[in-house]
Design a protein around this nucleic acid. Structure first.
Lengths: 146, 146
DNA sequence: TTCGTTTCCTACTATTGTAGTAGGATTGTT
DNA sequence: AACAATCCTACTACAATAGTAGGAAACGAA
């Protein structure tokens, strides 16, 4: 029941792009060093975000990445589903592909459904913009405390 | 983000023991055939439940297993935590063993905390007795529909 | 046009976790 | 003594995780 680094890093990449969005595009190298993640590994993760159209890439020198939408248009759920796959806690709840033959008399299925709903409820109600706001508030408080 | 068979089977074992509790003890073989799970694999899973004192074993011929408490005293959460380990969606939230050094400025940690709470909320509020009740209700409805 | 910077693409690897299988020792009943 | 059950340990096949690695392609600037 763990979220893998792939999903977690993807969220942090999107957060980083939103936080440091100054009009210019941002290089993998910068994100990697700010977030303390391997460049090569980040490349792979950001490639997924790119293919899905969540970010736009510009190749060559002075290239990099940029968000394609406003930070409030990305939920954590979207990003996790993209990078992790389904967030369903059991396979039976994934696209009814291999629906178990006991599903009609399976009491536990109800529990997994509730769990699934609860998970979605959380991750679909936090946006990247929320994370940015939270960070900025924190920085403000630091200013005051000096 | 999947619950493994170990955890899911463990819940079904407990459910099965509660549902077929007639005073006599229940053999792994019976549970395995009713639940469609490999006997040998079930042995290992039930051994964990046994060590934790969730069930009591009786060895030798006519032996088997029995719940040690009332079905309403077992939550699904207890059973999952025992067999799966922590239900925290990220390691940072496990026993602060290897707390990440970014934790004090990590915006995503807040999300994972909320997720963790939501997960616990669900699994700690369903007991084995609930599952049994649900099954019995279903059987009643079947009777009426005949 | 050439150099350096950056993304892009594919392959590889080491480690761990999952989902069992297997075989026999031990314990108790008949 | 035979049998039926739990108990215990080891083994295995497969997939996922978490990266590393190397170079090709694209682009900007000199």
């Amino acid at each position: 029941m763990k979220i893998s680094t792939k999903g977690r890093y993807a969220v942090r990449v999107m957060f980083d792009l939103a936080l440091h969005n100054s009009g210019e595009c941002i290089k993998v190298k910068e994100i990697a060093s700010r977030q303390g993640i391997s460049e090569k590994y980040l490349e792979q993760i950001i490639a997924v975000l790119n293919k899905a159209g969540y970010v736009r890439s510009i190749r060559g020198a002075q290239g990099g990445y940029r968000l394609t939408r406003d930070p409030e248009d990305y939920t954590v759920g979207m990003i996790l589903r993209l990078t992790e796959g389904s967030l369903a806690p059991v396979a039976c709840l994934d696209g009814n592909a291999d629906e178990c033959d006991r599903s009609d008399t399976c009491e536990t299925l109800e529990v997994w459904k509730n769990l699934y709903d609860a998970i979605n409820q959380v991750v679909d109600n936090v946006t990247i913009a929320d994370l940015v706001t939270s960070r900025k508030k924190r920085l403000e408080n630091l200013d005051y405390s000096i």
